[in-house]
Design a protein around this nucleic acid. Structure first.
Length: 162
DNA sequence: GCCAACGTTGGC
DNA sequence: GCCAACGTTGGC
């Protein structure tokens, strides 16, 4: 079981939408590192923190899981799509994405400001300067510390940790 | 809306 | 393979 963090712009695709949709194919990622995490490393059942970026108060708002392992992102083939990539082909797709499944919304958002105060996250990739990755790995201990901060009960914590 | 910090592209 | 120009991300 691996742990991840997915960023989503709050005004584009908030967690409330994922909750409604239940599952969502995470298309539109056009960064090789982020793609490789999804394509090469993610497995069904992996847990993911859901982060709202470009929000008034950016922060982690809940938990999702990898529901389906990576498949070619169809938007790369659609000329009219803003995610269209003329250098990609169906024979050799360039972009892959996983499907996420909603799990849980925190009672309260854990703001970026709060995250910065957590000693468990001192080494975290999320807080590293200039980090712009929209999909990134999270250490199990970091994931756990965040769930604790979110006020999950021992039972819930165990369930979300998997 | 600004801008720092990247990542990508393409000419050479 | 270098690097300038350009595009994007995301906090503020």
């Amino acid at each position: 079981m691996k742990y991840w963090l997915f960023k989503s712009e709050e005004n584009e695709y908030p967690i409330t939408q994922l909750k409604k949709d239940k599952t969502e194919f995470w298309d539109g990622v056009r960064n090789y590192q982020a793609r490789n995490f999804m394509w090469k490393e993610m497995e069904k059942g992996d847990r993911a923190l859901f982060y709202h970026s470009n929000a008034k108060i950016p922060g982690i708002v809940g938990v999702a899981e990898v529901y389906k392992e990576a498949a070619p992102d169809p938007t790369q083939f659609i000329k009219k799509s803003k995610y269209y990539d003329p250098k990609s082909s169906t024979e050799k797709p360039r972009w892959y994405a996983v499907e996420l499944k909603y799990r849980k919304t925190f009672q309260e958002k854990i703001s970026l400001e709060t995250l910065k105060t957590m000693s468990a996250l001192k080494e975290s990739r999320l807080l590293m300067k200039g980090n712009r990755l929209s999909v990134m790995p999270i250490q199990k201990a970091e994931f756990k510390a965040i769930l604790k901060k979110a006020g999950l009960s021992a039972t819930e914590l165990k369930k979300e940790l998997g």
